[in-house]
Measured scan of single mutants.
Amino acid sequence: MSAKKSPEELKGIFEKYAAKEGDPNQLSKEELKLLLQTEFPSLLKGPSTLDELFEELDKNGDGEVSFEEFQVLVKKISQ
Rank of each mutant, 00 (worst) to 15 (best):
S66M: 12
K45Y: 07
K11V: 04
A3N: 13
I77W: 03
D58W: 09
K4P: 05
S42I: 09
L36H: 00
E8P: 03
E69A: 08
K76A: 02
L32G: 03
L73Y: 07
S42A: 10
E21T: 05
G22E: 03
G46I: 11
E64T: 15
E39I: 02
Q26F: 08
L34Q: 10
K20F: 03
I13E: 01
K59G: 15
E64Y: 07
F70Y: 08
G22Y: 02
I77Y: 04
K5D: 12
P24V: 10
D51M: 12
G61C: 13
L44Y: 13
V74H: 08
D23K: 03
P24I: 13
P41Q: 13
E8N: 04
K59T: 12
L73H: 03
K16A: 07
L32D: 00
L57A: 15
A18L: 02
K76P: 02
L35I: 12
L27H: 00
L50C: 14
K5L: 10
L57F: 10
K5F: 10
L43P: 09
E39P: 00
E52P: 08
Q26G: 09
L35W: 01
P47D: 10
L43E: 15
A18F: 01
A18C: 02
P7L: 12
K20R: 12
Y17P: 00
K4T: 14
E39T: 02
E56S: 11
L27V: 10
K29Q: 05
K33V: 10
E9M: 09
K76R: 05
P24S: 14
F40R: 04
E64P: 12
Q79C: 09
L27F: 01
S48A: 11
L27Y: 00
Q71T: 09
V65T: 13
L43G: 08
S48K: 14
S42L: 06
D23M: 04
G63E: 15
A3T: 07
L50W: 09
G63H: 15
G61R: 08
S2E: 04
L53K: 09
L44W: 15
S42Q: 08
Q71G: 12
L53C: 08
E69Y: 08
F67S: 05
F14R: 00
K75G: 10
S6A: 02
E15Y: 15
Y17V: 01
E30I: 09
E30M: 13
G12F: 10
M1R: 00
E8R: 08
K4R: 06
G12V: 13
K11Y: 04
E69P: 02
K11L: 05
L57E: 08
Q71R: 05
D51Y: 03
K75L: 08
I13M: 14
D51S: 09
N25P: 06
K11R: 02
A18I: 02
P47A: 15
Q37E: 12
F14E: 00
D51R: 06
L27M: 07
E15L: 13
S66I: 05
I13D: 01
F14P: 00
S6Y: 01
F67D: 01
D58Q: 15
L10F: 08
L57R: 10
V74S: 11
E64M: 13
Y17S: 01
K59D: 10
Q37S: 03
D58E: 04
A19Q: 13
E21A: 11
K20L: 06
G61S: 12
M1V: 01
V72E: 05
G63C: 08
L44S: 08
E64W: 15
L34F: 08
E21R: 04
P47R: 07
S28M: 02
D58H: 05
S2V: 15
L44E: 14
K75C: 03
E9P: 02
F70K: 00
K5V: 04
A18Q: 02
E30T: 11
P47M: 11
K33C: 06
A3D: 15
K75A: 04
E31Y: 06
K11M: 03
L73K: 01
A18K: 02
L44C: 11
L73S: 02
L53W: 12
K33E: 09
E52N: 11
G12C: 04
Q71P: 02
Q26R: 14
S78C: 00
F14A: 00
L53R: 09
N25Q: 06
E56F: 07
D51F: 04
I13R: 01
E30S: 14
